[in-house]
């Protein structure tokens, strides 16, 4: 009896270690639990990227299921996903709102002017498509920090009550839309229409 136990124990430990390590093979080291999931949008009051006199607050993102897209002209992947986002906006009536941030216009970090950035944004949107209802300009990137943004592109699916229901790090392409973001979006839209 004791002998079988002695033989079985290393085997059990071995199998446990193998299972643990095997999971590590397919785990995404960049995947994190978002802290903002199922939380209402953090408080903010930020200007429109194109018209600084227009101010937005969380109330502007309520009433309709919205996908908040964190982006910037300096981000290559953002340019890559723009045509597909535009397709979704045009054909599936998906509401995209941009959360724009640019370290180069921050006086602490760079020397670009807002006029130059607006020009770049316009060029890029006319070149690749413009999916955005409007763009919120995250001047000091406080909102990005509050949302737990690590880079760009990132997407937040926000329900009609302004609660964040999904935080997707990375771009939206056809595969991501059909398997991950799209189902959540359609489910929320269904909830919204009684």
């Amino acid at each position: 009896m004791k002998r079988t136990w002695l033989v079985a124990l290393p085997l059990v430990i071995f199998v446990a270690v193998i299972v643990f390590l095997y999971q590590g093979l397919s785990a995404d080291p960049r995947a994190r639990d978002s802290q903002i999931l199922n939380q209402p949008l953090p408080e903010f009051s930020l200007p429109d990227l194109m018209h600084e006199e227009r101010q937005y607050t969380p109330a502007d993102l309520q009433g309709e299921v919205t996908i908040l897209n964190v982006w910037g002209v300096w981000c290559v992947t953002c340019a890559v996903e723009l045509p597909y986002l535009t397709y979704l906006a045009d054909n599936e009536r998906v509401k995209f709102v941009g959360l724009y941030f640019d370290q180069d216009i921050d006086p602490d970090f760079g020397g670009k002017t807002i006029t130059a950035v607006r020009k770049e944004v316009q060029t890029m949107l006319s070149q690749y498509g413009n999916p955005y209802a409007f763009n919120i300009y995250d001047v000091y990137r406080d909102m990005s920090l509050d949302l737990g943004v690590t880079g760009a592109p990132e997407h937040f699916v926000i329900d009609q009550h302004g609660v964040i229901r999904m935080h997707h790090i990375g771009d939206i392409n056809e595969r991501v839309w059909t398997t991950k973001v799209g189902p959540m979006y359609h489910q929320l839209v269904k909830e919204n229409t009684p």
């Binding site: 080291p29 920090l145 690590t150």
Partner: peptide, 23 residues
């Protein structure tokens, strides 16, 4: 640094690390 694999924000030059240092 949440963007980089195993680098602290003092050593990283990622945009997010700069923002976090300032914060």
């Amino acid at each position: 640094c949440p963007m980089c694999q195993n680098q602290n924000i003092a050593d990283s030059d990622a945009m997010i690390a700069r923002d976090m240092r300032r914060k």
